[in-house]
């Protein structure tokens, strides 16, 4: 009965082929270090879910950002849990993505034929750091305000175009409501879109080229 429905579905969607390509494939024997990639993906999913939930109450304006986060922490049921997970998963994600990069590096897995997979991975690493940087301005607390002041000032020291970059990041000469909304836009729209797209390419390449094997002594 079930198989009849699956074959009907497959006739129209090719779902069985997709399943075979994605799940039913052989890969070399790998160790536990190879789980870091899927762990990054898992943490990203956690961030998407908790992030969407936070956006239900969060207000990206200097007048209300702090109060709305306080409300999430003390007024909304389980708000502390949702924000707690989002906060810690952000730190863990930076750590796990970085370790994933180191694993790929030390196993030489970025070499032929996986050079492009590596490049997409670097984009994902930078985007993850970008998420961290844009994310911690949003609660509009002391740490947020000052860390962002310092962070954007760093960008402002680039010779020649520094002042331009600084104004572009802050949306003006100082940290203001404009800064907050553009960091918000970057944090919930631009960077997630980049990450989603590049994760798609990254996974396609991983499946197409196969997971690299653990190199042997002589390789």
């Amino acid at each position: 009965m079930a198989s009849k429905w699956i074959s009907r579905l497959d006739e129209r969607t090719g779902i069985v082929g997709v399943y075979k390509t994605v799940f039913d494939r052989k890969i070399p024997k790998v160790n536990w270090w190879f789980t870091l990639g899927s762990a990054s993906l898992f943490l990203f999913s956690v961030q998407v879910v908790t992030g969407i939930l936070l956006s239900v109450y969060y207000v990206p304006s200097p007048d209300h950002a702090y109060d709305s986060v306080q409300y999430i922490m003390t007024g909304v049921q389980f708000g502390w849990l949702i924000r707690g997970i989002h906060h810690w998963a952000a730190s863990l994600m930076v750590l796990v993505v970085f370790l994933h990069m180191l694993r790929v590096f030390f196993y030489g897995a970025y070499k032929y034929p996986r050079e492009i997979t590596w490049v997409t991975g670097v984009v994902l690493l930078l985007a993850t750091l970008g998420m961290g940087f844009t994310g911690y301005l949003l609660p509009w607390n002391q740490k947020a305000y000052w860390a962002t002041t310092v962070g954007t000032s760093i960008a402002g020291t680039v010779p020649g175009i520094g002042d331009f970059i600084l104004r572009a990041l802050r949306g003006g000469t100082d940290l203001s409501a404009v800064t907050l909304t553009r960091f918000f836009a970057a944090h919930v729209w631009m960077l997630p879109l980049v990450i989603l797209t590049v994760i798609g390419i990254h996974l396609y390449l991983v499946i197409r080229n196969g997971i690299s094997a653990v190199p042997k002594d002589h390789e």
């Binding site: 039913d24 494939r25 052989k26 890969i27 070399p28 024997k29 536990w32 789980t35």
Partner: peptide
């Protein structure tokens, strides 16, 4: 050859994940 001696993504690898 490494794949031949290897494992199936599902169920072997995915289990660890």
């Amino acid at each position: 050859l490494a794949k031949l001696h290897g494992e199936k993504f599902f169920p072997d690898t995915i289990y660890k994940d």
